[in-house]
Amino acid sequence: METESDINGHLAARLRGLRAQNGLTLDELSERTGVSRSMISLIERGESSPTAVILNRLAAGLGVSLASLFAEAGRAEASPLVRHADQRVWRDPESGYLRRALSPPGHPSPIEIAEVILPPGARVAYDSGPRTARIGQQVWVLEGEVEVTTGRDSHRLAAGDCLCMGIDRPNMFHNPADRPARYLVALAATSLRPWPGERPVPD
C-alpha cells in the first residue's frame, strides 16, 4: 500500500510532466488556475499535501481531469488488470474524503473510474471552468446519500441513483447524512458539442 509520501511524489511527477507537456511556466500555470506559484512549486517538489480543490484547479489549468492526476501515463505494455490491493488510495486533507483509483494504471483507455467515500457532513466544491477537452462524468451512488450541485442545478442522490454531468462548471458534492456515502465516478472525453442548455462556444 502506498504511503502519503508516495502519493505526493506521484502527484509531483505528474504535475511537472503535464506542465512541461503544455509548455507552461510556474507563473503561467499560477495565472491560469489562481493557485499561487509557491504552492505549485511545493506540490511539484512533493513537499505539500494538496487538497482536492487545489488539485482540481491545477487539473483544469492543464486541460485534464482530476482523476488523471492520480493515473499513470499511458503505456502500451501496461496491464489491463489492477488488483484491489494495488489500487491508488488518496485522502483529501481538507474534507477527509477517500478516493480510490479503480482503473488499471497506465493502460490505454478512454474511461477513468474512481470510488469515493464522502464522510458524514463533508462538502467538496470544485470551481473549475472549461478544459481543452470536453470531459463527461457520471456519478453512481452505491451507499448513503449525496447532494450534487452542478452549475445552477441541484440533485439529491440516493443509493442506486446515477447522474450524468459535465466538469466544465462549478460542481459541489455534499453528504447531508450522518453516515458515509460511497459512490463511483466514471469520466470519459466526449465531443465538443455543448451540454444540454449550454450555448455553443464560437470558433
Rank of each mutant, 00 (worst) to 15 (best):
R45W: 00
R45H: 02
G46I: 01
E47K: 05
S48Y: 07
S48Q: 06
P50E: 03
T51D: 06
T51K: 06
V53D: 02
I54M: 13
I54E: 08
L55M: 14
L55K: 13
N56W: 02
R57A: 10
L58P: 00
L58G: 03
L58E: 01
A59C: 11
L62T: 03
L62M: 10
G63T: 05
G63K: 04
S65Y: 05
S65M: 00
S65A: 06
S65E: 00
L66C: 11
L66H: 06
L66N: 02
A67G: 05
A67T: 06
S68D: 01
S68H: 11
L69M: 08
A71N: 12
E72Y: 13
E72N: 11
E72W: 13
E72D: 14
A73V: 11
R75N: 14
R75S: 14
A76V: 05
E77Y: 13
E77T: 14
E77D: 15
A78R: 10
S79G: 10
P80M: 10
P80G: 09
V82Y: 07
H84K: 03
A85R: 15
A85S: 15
D86H: 15
D86F: 10
W90R: 12
W90N: 07
D92P: 05
D92N: 11
D92K: 11
E94K: 13
S95P: 03
S95H: 09
G96Y: 10
G96M: 10
G96D: 07
Y97R: 14
Y97D: 08
L98D: 06
L98Y: 04
L98R: 15
R99C: 03
R99S: 00
R100Q: 15
R100E: 14
S103N: 01
P104A: 10
P104C: 07
P105K: 15
G106C: 05
S109Y: 01
S109K: 02
P110C: 04
I113P: 01
I113C: 09
I113D: 02
A114C: 08
A114G: 05
V116H: 03
V116Q: 06
I117R: 09
I117D: 06
I117L: 10
L118Q: 14
P119T: 11
P119E: 06
G121I: 04
G121T: 02
A122R: 11
A122L: 12
R123Y: 00
R123N: 01
R123A: 03
V124N: 04
Y126Q: 00
Y126I: 13
Y126H: 07
D127R: 09
S128L: 06
G129L: 15
P130V: 00
P130H: 04
R131P: 02
T132D: 15
A133M: 14
A133P: 02
A133C: 12
A133K: 13
R134C: 04
I135P: 01
Q137C: 09
V139T: 15
V139Q: 08
W140P: 01
L142H: 07
E143S: 07
E143T: 08
G144T: 04
E145N: 12
E145C: 10
V146K: 10
V148F: 04
V148C: 06
V148W: 06
V148E: 03
T149N: 09
G151A: 13
R152F: 13
D153H: 12
S154H: 07
S154R: 15
H155D: 01
R156Y: 08
R156I: 13
L157A: 09
A158Y: 12
G160Y: 05
G160P: 00
D161P: 07
C162E: 09
C162A: 14
C162P: 00
C162S: 13
L163T: 08
L163A: 05
L163G: 04
L163F: 07
